[in-house]
Amino acid sequence: MRKKEVRFALEKTSPIAFGFVFLGIAFGVLMNEAGYNFLWSLLAGVFIYAGSMQFVMVSLLAAGAPIYTVAIMTLLVNSRHIFYGLGLIDQFKKMGKKYPYMIFSLTDETFSILTATEYPQEIDKNKASFLISLICQIYWVVGCTVGGLLGPLFPFDAKGIDFSMTALFVVLLINGLKKKSAHIPALIGAFSSLIFLIILGPDRFLLPTLTLTVVLLEVFKKPITSREEEAGI
């Protein structure tokens, strides 16, 4: 592994380092308080690696929820992932042995960073994107483990640290909008989400939103591609 790619990946993942570590810690602390030692949090971080679902898991475990409920909840919370792969099939297919790990580690944040990153010529794109995904998960696993070890001893009130994820998406949106060809897609995403948020409320709007987004991207294919051609994409 060359140093250049490691440095590049560390830089690209740095905005979420704090967020991932502290949210991981919050999860580990919750697990510890629920009676599960750090090994459980560590295993969850390594094998599940899905932030919001791991938090849901703590309450499912505490309630002793039946397995079919666990399965349905997981499907509901994580089905948004189905849409992320659509944006990365072409890129991941070229990655050989790293392909399965790239799919496994596809979170909201890695999706956003991987699709928003522009790779300079001297950087090996496959190595760098693999490292970006790996480093994100390392932050997360470290957080889960530390939280699980410290439990209630953890001395810092991290309330609000999850806003760093919001901040990251806002920044990536601004960066993305520099390309004129991204304006209509971003408007479509904002429009779809606001419509369904108002109609369906905060708990159920995400899937209809993503579905409508894909449909509208197809509907507006002509104006979007003509703008891409103007920009020479």
């Binding site: 944006g87 956003s112 919001t166 998406f169 897609p185 971003a186 479509i188 939103t209 991207l217």
Partner: peptide, 26 residues
């Protein structure tokens, strides 16, 4: 990879990031 999937692959990310901003502020 079909032309349609390549198109979605190019234009979905900015749309999804806009969705995620709204999702975070829901």
């Amino acid at each position: 990879v079909s032309e349609r999937v390549l198109y979605i692959g190019r234009v979905l990310p900015p749309a999804v990031i806009a969705v995620l901003v709204v999702y975070c502020l829901r």
